[in-house]
């Protein structure tokens, strides 16, 4: 246990020294502020940019609009940057050979993977909470949130999908031992999910639902129970990839 914590501490130090903590705090708080800001400012901007005299019948923005921005920006910008930031966790060590000494000192190979996963998990949680809490606070301050359904559960879906993507990246990054390996695997995985999503019947189980359905959950168009199977499948896939990474790394030639 103490060697697990020791390695985790090393991961933490590394993330701080390589400015990952700074970037995460910054990007995700800016994202949190931007979501309600964009919604709030859009009508004013429209008025200013439209030619004089044009009559606009824009409905006043609501809490729903603020959350729609959240579901647009957080997965597109936030998740993308997060994956980019944490896509070299394994390849950097494997390319340089920094793990060799620690492994020959008796560091368990599974410790390496689980500690790195835990660190990515922590950062993703931090990133998610930052954006979510800031967007939530602004939205609650400016608008009436009682019209929005399942605020927390819908956001939870996106959070779980992000974790799944991070685990897939970790696997690809370990398997191919190169920075682009992890990214490529993740991109391929997402494209595959989108292709599957072309068939409407896949909506009952496709984990991609965790990403695309939450906006409809807010308005009640998608019932909570419909998310159960995609959620279970996402968690299951996540564990398969995590175990796959551990098993692969246990037998990796260094």
């Amino acid at each position: 246990m103490s060697s697990w914590l020791g390695f985790l501490k090393k991961e933490w130090t590394e993330s701080v020294k390589s400015y990952k903590l700074l970037l995460t705090l910054l990007i995700f708080s800016v994202l949190g502020v931007m979501n309600p800001f964009i919604v709030k400012i859009t009508p004013t901007l429209m008025k200013n940019f439209m030619p004089e005299g044009t009559v606009l019948n824009l409905p006043d923005p609501t809490a729903i609009d603020s959350w729609l921005q959240f579901y647009k920006n957080f997965p597109q910008m936030g998740l993308f940057i997060f994956i980019l930031l944490f896509s070299t966790m394994m390849s950097k060590e494997l390319e340089k050979g920094t793990l060799v000494i620690l492994l020959t000192k008796g560091l368990r190979r599974s410790t390496v993977i689980t500690a790195k996963f835990a660190m990515g998990f922590t950062y993703w949680t931090l990133a998610f909470l930052l954006t979510f809490i800031i967007t939530y606070s602004y939205t609650a301050f400016y608008w009436d949130q009682s019209i929005v359904q399942h605020v927390f559960l819908a956001a939870g879906c996106v959070y779980v999908f992000g974790l799944l993507l991070f685990t897939i990246t970790l696997w690809g990054n370990t398997y191919f031992a190169s920075a682009y390996g992890g990214l490529l695997v993740t991109v391929v995985a997402v494209i595959a999910l989108f292709i599957v999503a072309i068939f409407p019947e896949s909506a009952s189980w496709n984990p991609l639902q965790l990403l695309t359905a939450p906006p409809h959950m807010l308005t009640g168009e998608v019932a909570l129970v419909e998310m159960r199977t995609p959620f279970i499948i996402a968690i299951g896939t996540l564990f398969i990839f995590l175990l796959g990474t551990i098993f692969h790394f246990n037998k990796k030639r260094l």
């Binding site: 090393k10 590394e14 340089k96 050979g97 920094t98 000494i101 492994l103 020959t104 000192k105 008796g106």
Partner: peptide
Amino acid sequence: SNAHVGYLPDVPEFY
């Protein structure tokens, strides 16, 4: 067996 061994690689890499 690694518990009994100390290893210095040809190009040691540290953090």
